[in-house]
Design a binder for these strands. Structure first.
Length: 849
RNA sequence: GGACCCUUAGCUCAGUUGGCUAGAGCGCGUCAUUGACGUUGACGAGGUCGGAGGUUCGAGUCCUCCAGGGUCCACCA
């Protein structure tokens, strides 16, 4: 016995992982049909969270399974520079040393963050290894690697040449704290209570007035018009006249625009093109120049001196106070409206006018939508596909510009003499370049991170460069969290199709969020975050992996249950002890041989494990991870440990013991890679790696023998049921039988049911084991039998109840006529069986009374 | 304002195309007890599948409505 009594994962996991890496076991075999998964690159700015553990585990289960199935598997790992996300983390680091971004040049910042990320990235990669991911580390891609930038620039150029990229002054969602613009999707809307203020704008002669309604009175300072609906009788006569903008005393026109909703507020809309997307459009239609009154740092500019430099909220109060003093307020009402916030810092997003780079997205979106419609990509859960198609329909142009130094520079240069003249050039290391005698200045903005990660599948597989790896494009499956379906999955589909004329992956599997134990979303601020590495340290990597897939279905947000991780750990220990037992039973120097089933249990366990392996095939093909895991768990714990191992104690069949152990390890390996490989390595008849061994194939067995073992199981279960209630003195009693199946398996039954002995008799004596329908009786005293009477009565009542339902069903003509014949036949068979059981139970009761 | 999801045993959750006394893990109860494993074994108790209708021979599963919980999307000032 060279294995300790209990399995200690920490003692083996790092060694086993190192061994796989040394053996290059994760590398694609180059043989078989390619199967590829690209890892959603975790942010290289911190630690993995429990959601990563789930996603990567699912991917690794698939990778290991298909590797064993003989596919040419690439599971390509990555790390994301996570532009804005990392930037936020780094700014916090800077703040710790009382520094800010303004203390450094862009180049200094970039290299500082680079160093910061390199260090964090190393931690993250160690954590990936601790989870046991069988990723092809040689193909690891960081989102700032040269090949990424090259490909991203290539795509940008293509978009540019196809006139799908434009630069323009548009309203962008802007975080004044982080001082960068966002894509629409990055804005987090919350319903909040606010006020709708009514404000009077006096006519030029100050006799009349128009009342407008606004939730943001401070933007009044940037108003350039009042808009009313052309058909609105209240204002019809005023259209074309001018009015006085309060506080600023600027004359502005009253214009007519169909956009205005007559029923909202007062039906008159103040127009602030610089700070509202709709107003911007109105302004464009009416040739009104926008006036920016909120600066990029969130303070007021271009306003009367008493408001200049105030932050938005203070300005709002002052503006309201000034209006009050001027007697221009006409009441207010409470309303609930959606307010956009920065998803990182919660700062209220200001719509600001800024020159940004945009992708004209609809041509790309519609192509992606069509690919989904045509079934080129399937989804699990399927319902998400339709949701995504709707999303494509409503997508608006994508703002690619980010005003942060950490990211891929936008490869564009501006003519110093002609601001409208932009050229594409990749010499982003130069701040100015000269082309044909003209000087161009570099764009300072960087790309939205999702623009690069949106090209991940064809970047990581070198599809454009067409290296060896290109055979892995499109990817077989994309597995990721539902939370980034819009941000990431949608972009990969659009950019993938655009750049490669192919869908980037054939299947999308979306996992839900891992919630805390109480079902609440985890967040650092709530302090309810579960760290996967703590779980690995306490229970082992396999335990975490088993626990996190258990009872989890696609797309559902589900609570994390430590109890399932504990169950996973116990399962590993069970496997471990199965191995200890079998290794102990096999002679020194055992050499593998094909399984030679002799006993009923041998045939039965072959059937069970073969069935389990093929069930797992089906479940994994359907991405039913939890059910596949359950199949493994039960095949090994219930069937192998509780029945086969116990049965094997009454026989000695080394070929079967070894085969059962090998097969158990194989089917469990995708789910619990470490413990299975650890055991495999301890088996002296193996000198290969479990990870690269082949998935079990069918083995011949005798179905009749397997069925007979099942009958014996029923007998044993009934014997146990009866004896469990017996007093200690009678518990290990005799079993009398007149039954050749029992006689032939005397020792087995004796052991499994813990009987004193099994003896042949001519005449019935004791209590008949009626349920299992064999000629077998337990030796029980008259007194005990009497006590057992109530059990028999309960069983009898239950059986009669069931017979009633069966009879009712069969006497229903519609059922007999319409239900499948097979079902009707089954009902008939059941009825016969149950009727016979009733007779036997009644007989026993008669004897007792 | 729109869309989607959830409600099944004490807890966390499975339950594919409707098919026949509803499953798992943990927890609970009784018993076992030291050579594979107490991270164990045997046996057991827990559910009118949120509520009300409907379709069907048959509904946890499909439809409608209601109640409660959640998520996402949305430029109404």
């Amino acid at each position: 016995m060279n294995l300790a009594k209990t399995y200690d994962p920490n003692q083996y996991e790092p060694t086993i992982y190192a061994m796989w890496e040394t053996a290059n076991a994760f590398a694609p075999s180059g043989k078989g049909e390619p199967y590829s998964i690209v890892m959603p690159p975790p942010n290289a700015n911190g630690n993995l969270h429990i959601g990563h553990a789930l996603t990567f585990n699912l991917q690794d289960i698939l990778s290991r399974y298909y590797r064993m199935k003989g596919r040419d598997v690439a599971y390509i790992p990555g790390a994301d520079h996570a532009g804005f996300e990392t930037w936020v983390v780094y700014e916090k680091e800077l703040a710790k040393s009382s520094k800010s971004r303004f203390d450094f040049t862009r180049e200094q910042l970039y290299s500082q963050v680079w160093n910061f990320v390199q260090q964090k990235r190393g931690d993250m990669e160690l954590q990936l290894r601790a989870l046991g991911v069988s990723a092809t580390w040689d193909d690891m891609v960081f989102t700032l690697d040269e090949k990424v930038i090259d490909t991203v620039y290539g795509t940008f150029k293509k978009l540019w040449d196809d006139k799908l990229i434009y630069r323009g002054e548009r309203i962008v969602s802007y975080c004044t704290l982080h001082q960068t613009g966002f894509a629409d999707i990055e804005v987090e809307y919350k319903n909040e209570k606010g006020q709708l203020w009514k404000i009077a704008y006096p006519t030029l002669d100050k006799i009349g007035e128009i009342i407008i309604a606004t939730t943001r009175p401070e933007t009044l300072l940037g108003d350039v018009a009042i808009a009313v609906h052309p058909d609105d009788p209240r204002y019809k006569d005023l259209i074309g006249s001018r009015i006085l903008l309060p506080l600023v005393e600027r004359e502005i026109p009253i214009i007519a625009d169909e956009y205005v909703d007559q029923s909202f507020g007062t039906g008159a809309l103040k127009v602030t093109p610089a700070h509202d997307p709709n107003d911007f459009e109105i302004g464009q239609r009416h040739n009104l120049a926008p006036i920016q009154v909120i600066d990029f740092d969130g303070t007021m500019i271009n306003v009367p001196p008493q408001f200049a430099g105030l932050d938005v909220m203070t300005a709002r109060k002052r503006v309201l106070a000034a209006l009050e003093a001027a007697e221009l307020r006409r009441g207010e009402e409470d309303i609930e409206h959606a307010v956009g916030h920065c998803y990182k810092c919660g700062t209220i997003i200001q719509p600001l006018l800024k020159d940004q780079w945009f992708v004209n997205i609809q041509p790309l979106a519609q192509r992606a939508k069509k690919a989904l419609e045509d079934g080129e990509v399937e989804f699990t859960p399927a319902s998400r596909k339709r949701i995504l198609m709707t999303y494509f329909d409503n997508l608006r142009d994508w703002n690619l510009s980010r005003q942060i130094p950490w990211g891929i520079p936008i490869p564009a240069f501006q003519n110093v003499n002609d601001p409208e003249d932009w050229i594409f050039d990749t010499r982003v290391d130069e701040s100015t370049i000269v082309v044909d005698g003209t000087t161009y200045r570099r764009e300072e903005d960087t790309f939205d991170t999702w623009f690069s990660s949106g090209q991940w599948p064809f970047i990581t597989t070198d599809y454009i460069a067409n290296t060896d790896l290109a055979r892995f494009y499109p990817n077989s499956v994309l597995a990721t969290g539902v939370d980034i379906m819009y941000a990431w999955v949608s972009r990969m589909l659009m950019l993938g199709l655009y750049a490669t004329d192919q869908v980037p992956f054939k299947h999308v599997y979306l996992n839900g969020l891992v919630l805390d134990e109480k079902g609440i979303k985890m967040s650092k601020s709530k302090g309810n975050v579960i760290n996967p590495m703590d779980m690995v340290a306490e229970y082992g990597s396999d335990a975490l992996r088993l626990g996190i897939v258990a009872s989890r279905s696609a797309g559902q947000n589900q609570a994390f249950a430590t109890s399932k991780v504990v169950a996973g750990r116990n399962f590993c220990n069970k496997l471990w002890n199965i191995a200890r037992f079998i290794e102990d039973k096999l002679a020194e120097g055992y050499r593998p041989q094909p399984p030679q089933p002799t006993s009923l249990a041998d045939h039965w366990i072959i059937r069970e494990l073969t069935t389990a392996a093929s069930d797992i095939d089906t479940q994994l093909t359907d991405y039913r991870f939890a059910e596949a895991g359950e199949a493994v768990y039960h095949a090994i714990w219930d069937n192998v440990a509780d029945w086969f191992i116990e049965a094997s104690k009454t026989e000695n069949n080394p070929s079967m013991l070894a085969w059962v152990l090998d097969t158990s390890l194989k089917i469990a390996h995708p789910f619990a890679p470490f413990v299975t490989e650890t055991i495999w390595q301890s088996l002296e008849w193996h000198n290969d790696l479990l990870i690269t061994t082949a998935w079990p194939t069918a083995v011949q067995y005798d179905d009749i023998a397997a069925g007979e073992f099942e009958r014996l199981q029923k007998l044993v279960i009934e014997a146990r049921y009866v004896t469990a209630e017996l007093p200690g003195s009678e518990r290990y009693g005799m079993l009398y039988q007149n039954d050749s199946l029992i006689a032939d398996n005397k020792d087995l039954i004796k052991h499994l049911a813990r009987l004193k002995d099994v003896t042949e008799v001519d005449q019935p004596r004791g209590l008949r084991l009626a349920s299992s329908n064999r000629e077998a009786w337990l030796d029980i005293s008259q007194e005990t039998m009497y006590e057992h009477q109530s059990n028999l009565e309960v069983r009898l009542a239950e059986t009669r109840q069931f017979i009633n339902t069966l009879e009712a069903r069969l006497s229903n003509e519609s059922y007999v006529a319409k239900a499948p014949a097979k079902l009707v036949e089954e009902s008939r068979v059941q009825l016969t069986i149950k009727k016979a059981l009733v007779t036997r139970l009644q007989d026993e009761l008669t004897i007792l009374s």
